[in-house]
Amino acid sequence: AEYEWTFQTSETAGEPQFEMKEQWAENVEKMSDGRISIEILPVGAVVQANQTLQAVKSGILQGHLTDPSYFTGQNPAFGMIGNLVGAWSDPYNFLDYMNNGGGEEIYNKLAEPYGVHLIGAAATGLESLPSSKPIHSVEDMQGLKLRAPEGMVYNVFEKAGATPVNLPGSEVYTSLEKGVIDAADYTVFATNQSQGLHEFANYPLYPGFHSLPMVAVSINNEIWNSLPGDLKAILSTSVDAMAYKMVGQLKTRDLEAVREARKDPNIHVIDLPAEERAKFRAIAKKEWKDWADKNEITQEFYNSVVSYLENHNLLKAEDGGSADQQASTDSQS
């Protein structure tokens, strides 16, 4: 092939997203008539998940398909754009915002100084929340020991009254099982179900409400700039195709897993009521505002995303007023 690249993902090879990313690479090869050949490697194969940004910049990797939240420590905007907690209730809205609402432009403004170019954004779908205690309301989150990784999740749940615990992913399974933590910000429902997490975290919240990680498909900036227009178009189009396919396939998998879980009398799948979701979003919105103050890009993103959500009537008026008040009394209590 004219171009031979290695891209690292943020999943292990067993996860369905990994297979979808491999299919994307195959698709690119077909569409480019063999001019581009991309090898997809699982998480940690070359460098740790939070080191791929530097690896792509320095040319060790040519690109990555990853959750930008891993790079929050280099610029908070990565965490904010990568996973705006509580903002999205439908992944298609997020994709629309990235493609047509100005999201990708802002992301590239952020990423290009770091030597990478965003080809396009995808999303994994809304993560469920495995919990060993029933959560029917924001009130029920009081004192909940919840594992939260890097990014915004920790602060938002803290504001919602929960007690976040900072544990690495590899400790989640045993810590939930033994009761060290009550709940975890972890991954999508189907994966939790297949790992047997729901046997003890038997009050999973589904559909999710808190976390929608972006999958940033990026390439080394110099390579991107040197590509002819037709190959650029092939890459962009193929990422968009993957993004829509990914959302659909993951949802199908989740729904199958939910059906399976419902058959088990010990597992109680909880759907957080709309008014509670609104309360949670109101709390999250305040955190967005705090993050907006961090730098120019976070401010620009905040303005852009809030105006998109408002224009599309996704921050319903009744959410704002009463829920805001409710939230402030909650967080004071």
């Binding site: 067993g14 590899s170 045993t174 297949s194 046997e199």
Partner: peptide, 19 residues
């Protein structure tokens, strides 16, 4: 159990860690 080898295997192969 608890074995870090089996946990990592379960995570990498998407298999039930409990099983």
């Amino acid at each position: 159990p608890p074995s870090i080898v089996l946990i990592i295997y379960g995570l990498m192969a998407s298999q039930s860690i409990a099983d």
